[in-house]
Design a binder for these strands. Structure first.
Lengths: 194, 194, 194, 194
DNA sequence: AATGAATGAGGTTTCATTCAT
DNA sequence: TATGAATGAAACCTCATTCAT
């Protein structure tokens, strides 16, 4: 019966917001953005439809916030916006990490691809993903230039395509996907490869 | 006032149907399936909404027919359902062809990815695409086994991932994408490799 | 190759019209008026939709013509619009006949009830059926008055209700319906009665 | 500004639902199922079309719920699913009751016949009405068997047909229909009858 | 006489969002 | 903070009817 403190209210609010975003991510990724209703999310969270609008301005806003949360969680691992150039060991570390964040957040990545391929949704949040991609591309190009490759930009594009392809295949059907073997192939054929 | 002949009716129907499918493909691929309305397609074709249903049972049926037309147009180029094993030259020919059909049908491929990543749409026609994929996977695995590679399945997965990644990146933004350079990288690093 | 005579054309036209009405009756009665499309009728007859409008002004017109054909076929058997009063033998003959026309035209009767109970359809053709009913009612009332019954009008209503009930039950599910036994009950309990 | 209590919401819902079902029954029965639009029901209730779907999953669902409400309201009066056999007094009581529920719920009965005679609508809810009918038929047959009648099944059919006919005639045009006189005729000629 | 492509009005249904309480 | 009834715009779809040929 003790009244809650302001801090408690804020905590409750944040917990609930996280819960709503988790449910939203799950549904957007697995059922599709258009196929997911606000009602369904609210029902799964055990709250009313109306309360959703206390946390998110609109369905679109929820999607945007999900995208931003996803991006931020990636940036925690690795921020490519830096001046220095990668060494080969750092590159190998990066590759390992990219596999790690894939298996850590398959649902986020499922949403990522879903978003990239739905033009109307892409218009809403695609730019955020794209700018991240550009940063990576620049960094990879620098790496391959330093390595003395003939066509560093193509190599960077190659590596990014490989990762996009692996992510794509993995999120569509992770069962039996040979992640470790592919990691070795990437390192041998692209990173180290003559 | 002689009535139209049967042949005339057939021609009208086929022309109209092709027109509607072309517009449908364009819109589904570029605007998204859910974001494209039957009204919009009809308006772009300069016909009434109702006439759409003279040609397609439903919006879903239009999507299915588009998917099937896309698959069939691919199978014309190459049908992986065969017994023999590929030689290296045949494999190189296949790689060239895969780049060819990408640049020939970017919109179809845009729809392909769009479909693969929208779970609700995937449920409608994904299986048709998936079975094609499985056939390719088997064929590629056989090739790498014949080549004496250590892990033929992983190599096949690798090659497919590369192609998925390239296709994906190309359809999202074809401008400046170094297709030819990537083709060489694939041949050198994966097909001929080591 | 001999050109058809005018008479032949008229005959062909009448045959086809009869065919269309038969199909229409079948579908209206068994699928419901609103649930039957002009397209379906035309398809079952092997003609085009457009040609239907060469025979009937509208879907409603087809229904009206069906109702009129049904009424006329009944009037052939027995026209109650007459002055004289029925004897008991004539009454028994009438009862027999009413069972006869039920088993002869179950589909027409199915349509009859269908029409009577669909207010929107009833508005179109109900009056035609109702006036026939009123004639019968008058005639039956006269009969029971002549027979010296206490309440001739109620007796007439009773007999009509029995017939409506029997018709209704028979058209809904004719299998196993004890028509002959019911005929005897009617004769013993109502016609001859007391 | 205290929020509404759960009890208040329940009351609002029940009131509204009852209102919509009452209007729906009225319109389905008097205008026909197909001729009644959801828009019309909503307009008569002074609400938006969309709200209808907050209370009923579909137009068909409204019809089903109406049928079930109708059946349940009848079963309150009399449930034929019981073991015992009717005495003559109980039978007379039953007859009285059947006339009572006719005059109490003419609209429900109008819908009943409407449903029975529209094959497409019958498919939706007919079975619910039919099973009730079968129960009655069994019970009546038992009664006439106990009474020593020659053909108990035919007698039961006869009685049911009479009631169907009376109900049918009454709902089509109740004005001046001699219900009481017909009740006496039923009791004298069928229930008590020789 | 005959076709079926084409129309257009109108129906059912969905759902993000608002709002009184 | 919290509810869910209520809205309204817009989607999909149907089909009687018309009309050029």
């Amino acid at each position: 019966m003790t009244p809650k403190t302001v801090a408690q209210y804020i905590e409750i609010r944040e917990d609930r917001k996280k819960q709503l975003m988790d449910i939203g991510l799950e549904l957007f990724a697995n059922e599709g953005y258009h196929n997911t209703t606000i009602s369904r999310i609210a029902a799964m969270a055990g709250i009313s439809k109306g309360l959703m609008y206390n946390y998110f301005e609109s369905k679109e806003d929820l999607l945007i916030q999900l995208a931003e949360r996803g991006i931020n969680s990636l940036l925690v691992h690795f921020d490519p916006d830096r001046d220095g150039v990668l060494t080969r060991d750092e590159m190998i570390f990066l590759v390992n990490m990219l596999f790690q964040i894939l298996t850590d957040n398959p649902t986020t990545w499922k949403l990522y691809f879903s978003v990239m391929m739905q033009p109307d949704v892409y218009r809403i949040i695609g730019e955020r993903f794209r700018s991240m991609q550009v940063s990576y591309l620049d960094m990879l190009t620098s790496y391959f230039r330093e390595m003395g490759r003939k066509d560093p930009y193509a190599e960077a594009r190659f590596l990014m395509a490989v990762f996009d392809g692996i992510y794509l295949n993995y999120v569509i059907n992770p069962a039996g996907f040979p992640l470790d073997e592919l990691k070795q192939l990437i390192i041998n054929r692209i990173i180290v490869g003559e």
